[in-house]
Structure formats: C-alpha cells, structure tokens
Design a protein around this nucleic acid. Structure first.
Length: 415
DNA sequence: TCTGGGGTCCTAGGACCC
DNA sequence: TCTGGGGTCCTAGGACCC
C-alpha cells in the first residue's frame, strides 16, 4: 500500500509557524518577484482568492480583508520540509520525497493503516507544526486520489483498500483532479464526454493508450489497482539544471543583463557542484514580457557546447556572457534571462580528451572555497565582480519573512 | 505599473548505420 | 512498370508534475 502525505497550504503554513497570531486569519504567499499567489490559507481560499492569480489583480481585496501577504522564502520552506520528511521517515523505511511538500511512503503487511495514519498525522503536527493530509491506496495514482479526498474530510485521512471503496471513490472523481491529467488532456477527454475517473476507467486499454499514450495507460492500470509506477527511493542525478528569474523591471541595458546572467550562472554553478555534476552544454535564453502586447516580443536562445565538462563558476560565466552578447538586441525590453545546463555527467566520470591540451578538471578549490564561505556566512558573501553590486534588475521581494531557522541573526528571541 | 521557477517523460520525424 | 528490412541516435515539441 502507498501513502501520499502532503502539507496543507504548505508555504502559508510555514509562514504561520512563526507568526501564531495569524492562525485563523487569511494568509497568502507570493511567487518570485511578488508576481502571483502560490499558497493560500483556508481563510484566504474562502475569500475567493484563486491559485495562481497575479497579485496586482487581487491587491485591492487583499488590503480590504487585511490578508497577511508574504514574499516566498524558499530557504525557510526547504528547512521546514526537511523536518517534515525526517519525521515521516520514522514510520517506514520506504520513502520517496516527491516534492517540497509531498512524500510517498510504502507499507507492507500492515493491517491497521487507518490508525497508523492518524498517528503519523499527530506526530507531524506535534513535531513540526505543519498540518498534513494522508491518502492511502494500493497504487500511487489512487493514493493521490485518496489524498484529495482526505483534504476534504474532517479527519485528514482517507484509506482506499477494498474494491468497493476504490470503486466508490473513483466513480465521480473529476478527471481534471487526476494525477497525470492536465489542461490539454482534460479538454481532449471532455470532447469524448469523459468527465470522471470512473468513466475513464471503463474505457478499453487500447482506447486509453491511443488517447493518452503510455503514461495514460499506466494511470489506467493504476486506477484498477495494478501498481505500475514504482517508488523512487534514491534521488537520481538530474538531467538538466536551470536558473532563471524575472527581473524587478524591464531592461535593454547590456550591462544589467550581463550582471544578471553572471549572477544566475554563478547560482547554476553552485547547483551543479551540489549535484556533483558537470555540464557539457550551456543554454542561454532571453525573454521579453509576454503579457505586454504593446511591446515587440523577442525570445532568442543559444546552445553553447562547452569544450570540456565543467562546473566551475568562472568558466561557466565566461561562456554564458559570450552567449548572451550573441543573442542580445538592444531594440527589445527584456524581462527575464534563463541559464540552463544540459548534457550533465557525473563529476567523477569526466573523460579526458585525447587530442587537446586539456588534461582533466582543473583544480576547483576556488569554487569549492566560495561554496563553503557562502554556506557559512550566507549566500552571496563572496562572489565574482561581474555579478554586479547595484543589482537594479533584482527581483521584487517586498514582504519576505526572516530566515527563522537558518540564519543566526533571524532566530526568534524570547524575552 | 504589476503576470513564477524548475523539473520529467514521451512521441514523431529525420539522419544515419549495416 | 517494378526500388528492402531492421535498427540507433538525436531533436523539437507537447504533455505533465510540484
């Protein structure tokens, strides 16, 4: 049996941990650049604030209703997430951390899962302060479905074990809420008058494969209780690593774009090293603001093969800036730059080259020392001058909460 | 004025191999 | 008139997830 455990309104719940006076009050968390609503407390949902709406469109309502607004603080959420996952790992050895706020667990040969689920829930709320919902079923797809049911229930737990219970849960479950059905598939299925998981489940194997390809077929089997999506317990090495952010304002200034590209690339290099990977290809993409219909659009990108696999900051920045300059056009106002590393290979398995002077990864001690210093003294403490100092392009983050659990300066004082 | 960021998997089609 | 069969690898684009 699989369980899916997830934090209720996770980011909003994290913010409330350290602001208990906000319990029972509406709270929202914004995306990067204070752009969109990405997490809402139940009270905020009740006000009709929808997921994903641009902040400026609901600002008036938010002010009128005195909703507490937070810029996103991923340092905080990642730390709370780790506590949550560690707590859950005490209940079974088979754990897959699926996202920052979700976790699949697997149980073998247990006969009182319902009781166990309530114990887990109690333990998590007591040890981390985060309320969670738990769905349990014979497959991951059904566990996700059970989790949605759990969210709506009083107890926060939903166990689907017997064929009858599964049948009843699936029968009227909206197709759009299924794990694996997005907007495009929803539209496609509705053209065939399929609106519920029950209706989809009744279709033939061949029909489903034809409409939704192999992944849809897996989902179909899982809806019948035949598990075909395994638990991924070990983290696989990433195939691509990306750093991209919108600017706080539009710009066509090459100096600013160069600073931003250098900064993002520096962050990207840190991520590569943390993953113990080296890149063989670096992609740079410039984007204009697609919502500004009044401005000309320009979204050029370039793929730069690296002469040898690297993850050190200076080499990557040199390449990135060269790429940026080759696609930049001063006629356009840009809102974002993305730096993407692909063709990743393990740091330990970098091949030497037979026909060039290059003789192996150069001593990365400078980059590694920078990582150490930045981990200890805070991100950006030591950096390359090309990343700039004024950072006029930096993203908006007007309501960011303190790093309560990861920065000594921000630890709460009791007195 | 103001609209997020970071990933994965699958398929079709083209280039190429013997 | 009539032009094979069986593969691999790569890429772009489309779908999905949180």
């Amino acid at each position: 049996m699989y369980a899916l455990v997830d934090g209720n309104n996770f980011y909003a719940s994290c913010e409330r941990l350290f602001r208990p006076e906000l319990n029972g009050k509406p709270v929202v968390v914004l995306s990067n650049n204070d752009g969109c609503i990405i997490s809402r407390s139940n009270e905020a949902k009740a006000l009709g604030i929808k997921m994903g709406v641009p902040y400026f469109k609901v600002k008036e309502l938010i002010e009128k209703e005195q909703v507490a607004v937070f810029s996103s603080n991923y340092t905080l959420y990642a730390d709370i997430s780790a506590r949550l996952m560690n707590n859950l790992a005490r209940f079974t050895p088979e754990v897959e951390v699926y996202s920052i706020d979700e976790c699949f667990l697997r149980f073998k040969g247990m006969d009182s899962l319902e009781t166990y689920a309530h114990q887990m829930r109690q333990s998590v709320i007591q040890n981390t302060g985060i309320p969670v919902s738990i769905g349990i079923a014979p497959t991951k797809t059904l566990a996700k479905l059970a989790n949605k049911k759990a969210k709506k229930s009083e107890s926060g737990v939903c166990v689907l074990e017997s064929d009858e219970a599964i049948h009843e849960a699936v029968e009227n479950f909206p197709i759009a809420d299924l794990w694996g059905i997005g907007r495009a598939y929803q539209a496609k299925l509705e053209l065939d008058y399929i609106f519920t998981a029950g209706q989809l489940r009744k279709q033939s194997e061949a029909w489903v494969k034809n409409k939704l390809t192999i992944q849809g077929l897996r989902m179909w089997h899982e809806l019948w209780g035949r598990s075909c999506i395994p638990l991924k317990e070990v983290l696989e090495r990433k195939q691509a690593i990306c750093t991209s952010r919108s600017f706080g304002k539009l710009t066509n200034n090459l100096e600013e774009l160069t600073e931003a590209t250098s900064s993002y690339t520096s962050r990207l290099a840190e991520k590569l090293r943390a993953d113990q990977s080296c890149a063989t290809i670096l992609n740079i993409q410039l984007l204009t603001n697609r919502f500004r219909k009044d401005l000309p659009q320009h979204n050029p990108c370039i793929s730069l093969p690296l002469s040898h696999p690297v993850n050190n900051t200076t080499d990557l920045i040199k390449t990135a800036v060269r790429g940026l300059k080759s696609i930049y056009n001063p006629r356009y106002q840009y809102s974002k730059v993305a730096v993407i590393a692909t063709g990743l290979i393990p740091e330990q398995e970098v091949q030497l080259h037979l026909f060039t002077e290059w003789n192996g990864p150069k001593n990365n001690s400078l980059s590694k020392l920078m990582d150490q210093l930045n981990r200890y003294y805070g991100s950006g403490t030591i950096r390359l001058a090309s990343e700039g100092f004024k950072k006029r392009w930096a993203m908006k983050r007007e309501n960011v909460s303190p790093s309560y659990t990861t920065d000594w300066e921000d630890v709460l004082k009791v007195g």
